[in-house]
Simulated assay, not measured.
Amino acid sequence: MKDGPAIANVAALIGDPARANILTALMAGKALTVSELAQEAGVTLQTTSSHLSKLLGGGMVSYRKQGRHKYFELASHQVAGTIEALMGLAADSGHLRTRTGPRDEALRSARRCYNHLAGTAGVQVYESMVRRGYLTVDAADLSLSTAGHVFAENLGIDVVRLSKGRAPLCRECLDWSERKTHLAGSLGRALLDYMIADGWVKQDATSRAVSFTARGRTLFNDIFPVLDAV
């Protein structure tokens, strides 16, 4: 066989249903214990530990130790982007979970995609910023314009500091429920952090969903208005 990335190894790691549930649970951006992940995966603690060992070895997750517990999280934003893209592919292919109800509606509306905003609200942020010229899209890159830099700085976001970090400032992420792009990268993370800190949104303790307060929804629509495509 020709040399190249061993994508089959990565696919095998993600492909196990229990490991897929573990990775999906970690898409909330929270570090979780083995016990919490066992509940999400629907398997025993011992089996969960075995799955986590494989995911650690494959570079898919990392952990931090605090006291007696280990807290697991996704290893990088690249892993999160891959999981989100696979969610989109699964949805497009008709491979959807049969569970329905308010939680699914909430996830479609607004949710965490690892560390940034996704769902209808996430797409609104991206499209509003593109149509006002704050984000520049070309075939090779997504970048923040001069006007976008001023916009972010006016929200109290230190764009210069973000630009010096390891993560890209702006990155496109395909939204699995909307089939459109939302904003990832360090700017996407900073915008969600801003919304949380200023009380625009509240996080669901049991899922990746986030819900807007009445004040938050008004501010969100004022700052990220829905505009007609030009």
Rank of each mutant, 00 (worst) to 15 (best):
L135C: 03
L117K: 07
V34N: 01
V130N: 07
L192R: 13
S186W: 13
L155S: 02
N154I: 15
G59I: 06
R171D: 04
G119S: 10
G101M: 08
V230C: 04
A197M: 10
A140G: 15
N9W: 03
S186H: 11
A20M: 15
S76P: 00
P5R: 12
G57K: 05
P102R: 10
L56C: 10
A110C: 06
Q66I: 15
A12F: 13
L13W: 13
A106W: 02
C173L: 10
T120V: 06
A31C: 06
M1S: 13
T48P: 02
A147S: 12
Q203L: 12
L74F: 11
S207P: 01
N154P: 06
K180Q: 08
L183G: 02
M129D: 00
K2G: 06
N221T: 09
G58N: 06
A38R: 02
R131K: 11
A31P: 03
S211M: 14
H116R: 07
G199S: 04
M27T: 09
T33Q: 07
G148M: 09
H95P: 03
V201A: 13
L37T: 04
E172S: 14
G119L: 00
I22S: 00
M27F: 02
T47M: 07
L144Y: 11
A38Y: 03
M195G: 01
S211P: 11
L144P: 01
L162D: 11
T98M: 02
P17R: 04
Q39W: 08
H182A: 05
G185M: 04
A140I: 12
A214W: 08
A11L: 13
A118Y: 01
H182S: 06
L227T: 07
W176K: 00
L155W: 14
T136S: 14
R161P: 15
A140D: 05
L117Y: 01
K30D: 00
L144C: 09
A121Y: 01
V43H: 02
Y126T: 12
A197R: 05
T24I: 06
G57A: 07
Q66M: 14
V130Q: 09
T47G: 07
S177N: 13
G216D: 07
K2S: 06
G133L: 13
Q66R: 13
G59T: 08
T82Q: 10
K180N: 02
G88V: 08
A38Q: 05
K180T: 02
A152S: 11
A12N: 14
T82F: 04
L219M: 12
S76F: 01
N21W: 12
